[in-house]
Amino acid sequence: QKEELKEKAKEAVKRGNKDKARELLKRAGISEEEAKKIIKKIE
């Protein structure tokens, strides 16, 4: 489940939808700070 949400978040970032990505990562139980780092890494 968590990995699936991370994959979806990756796709969202690639489409330029960072808010959606952050939302998905939060749903995966990832903190706001972690989510920001992950999104930065994907960009």
Results as ranks from 00 to 15, higher is better:
Arg22Met: 15
Arg27Ala: 14
Ala9Gln: 01
Lys10Asp: 03
Lys18Gly: 05
Glu4Gly: 09
Glu11Arg: 06
Lys41Gln: 15
Ile38Gly: 01
Gln1Asp: 13
Lys18Ile: 15
Leu24Gln: 02
Lys8Ser: 07
Ala28Pro: 01
Glu23Lys: 04
Val13Arg: 02
Lys14Glu: 08
Gln1Ala: 13
Ile39Cys: 00
Lys37Phe: 08
Glu33Asp: 10
Glu43Ile: 10
Lys26Ala: 11
Arg27Trp: 10
Ala9Glu: 01
Lys41His: 10
Ile42Cys: 05
Lys6Ile: 15
Lys36Ala: 15
Asn17Arg: 09
Lys8Ala: 13
Glu43Tyr: 07
Arg22Trp: 15
Gln1Thr: 14
Glu32Gly: 06
Asp19Phe: 07
Ala12Gln: 10
Asp19Tyr: 07
Ala21Ile: 05
Lys40Gln: 14
Ala12Cys: 06
Ala35Ser: 07
Glu3Arg: 06
Asp19Lys: 12
Lys20Val: 13
Ile42Trp: 15
Glu11Thr: 06
Lys40Ile: 11
Ile42Val: 09
Lys6Gln: 11
Lys10Phe: 11
Lys18Pro: 11
Ile42Pro: 01
Ser31Arg: 05
Glu4Arg: 10
Glu34Tyr: 04
Arg27Ser: 12
Lys26Phe: 08
Lys6Thr: 12
Arg15Leu: 11
Ala28Phe: 05
Ala9Leu: 10
Lys18Trp: 13
Leu25Ile: 01
Gly16Glu: 02
Gly29Asp: 03
Ile42Glu: 04
Asn17His: 11
Glu43Pro: 03
Lys20Gly: 09
Val13Thr: 04
Asp19Val: 08
Glu43Val: 07
Glu23Cys: 06
Lys6Trp: 15
Lys2Trp: 15
Glu4Pro: 04
Arg27Thr: 09
Ile39Arg: 00
Gln1Ser: 14
Ala35Gln: 05
Leu5Ala: 10
Lys40Leu: 13
Lys26Asp: 08
Lys36Tyr: 12
Lys2Glu: 11
Glu43Gln: 08
Ala28Leu: 09
Glu7Tyr: 07
Glu23Ala: 06
Gly29Trp: 01
Lys2Ser: 12
Leu24Gly: 01
Ile38Ser: 01
Arg15Asp: 10
Leu5Gly: 01
Leu24Trp: 05
Ala21Gly: 02
Lys18Arg: 10
Glu7His: 07
Lys6Asp: 04
Lys8Pro: 00
Ile39Trp: 02
Arg22Asn: 08
Lys37His: 10
Ile30Phe: 15
Glu11Pro: 01
Ala12Arg: 02
Ile42Gly: 03
Ile38Asn: 00
Ser31Trp: 03
Glu33His: 08
Glu23Arg: 06
Lys14Arg: 14
Ile39Pro: 00
Lys41Tyr: 12
Glu34Ala: 07
Leu5Arg: 01
Glu11Gly: 03
Lys18Glu: 06
Ala35Glu: 01
Leu24Phe: 08
Glu4Phe: 13
Lys37Ser: 12
Glu3Asp: 10
Asn17Pro: 01
Lys20Ser: 09
Ile38Tyr: 10
Glu43Arg: 04
Leu25Tyr: 05
Leu25Glu: 01
Lys6Asn: 06
Lys36Pro: 01
Lys14Trp: 10
Asn17Lys: 07
Ile39Thr: 01
Ala35Phe: 04
Ala9His: 02
Gly29Gln: 02
Arg15Met: 14
Leu24Pro: 01
Glu32Asn: 07
Ala28Arg: 00
Gly29Thr: 00
Ala35Asn: 00
Glu7Lys: 10
Asn17Val: 02
Asp19Ile: 09
Ala28Ile: 05
Ile30Cys: 11
Glu7Phe: 07
Gln1Trp: 15
Ala28Tyr: 05
Glu33Val: 08
Ala12His: 10
Lys10Ser: 07
Glu43Asp: 05
Gln1Arg: 12
Lys40Tyr: 14
Glu4Ser: 11
Leu24Thr: 01
Lys14Leu: 15
Ile42Asp: 03
Asn17Trp: 10
Ala21Tyr: 03
Ala12Glu: 13
Asp19Gln: 11
Lys14Ala: 08
Lys20Gln: 13
Leu24Val: 03
Glu34Gly: 04
Lys26Glu: 11
Glu34Arg: 05
Ser31Val: 03
Gly16Asp: 02
Ile30Met: 12
Leu25Cys: 04
Lys36Trp: 14
Glu33Pro: 05
Gln1Tyr: 14
Lys41Cys: 14
Lys10Met: 12
Lys26Pro: 00
Lys36Gly: 10
Leu5Met: 07
Lys10Glu: 08
Ile30Leu: 13
Lys2Met: 15
Gly29Leu: 00
Lys10Pro: 01
Val13Tyr: 10
Ala28Thr: 03
Lys2Asp: 10
Ser31Gln: 05
Lys37Asp: 14
Asn17Thr: 04
Glu4His: 12
Glu4Met: 13
Glu4Trp: 15
Arg22Val: 14
Ala35Leu: 05
Lys40Pro: 01
Gly29Phe: 00
Lys20Thr: 09
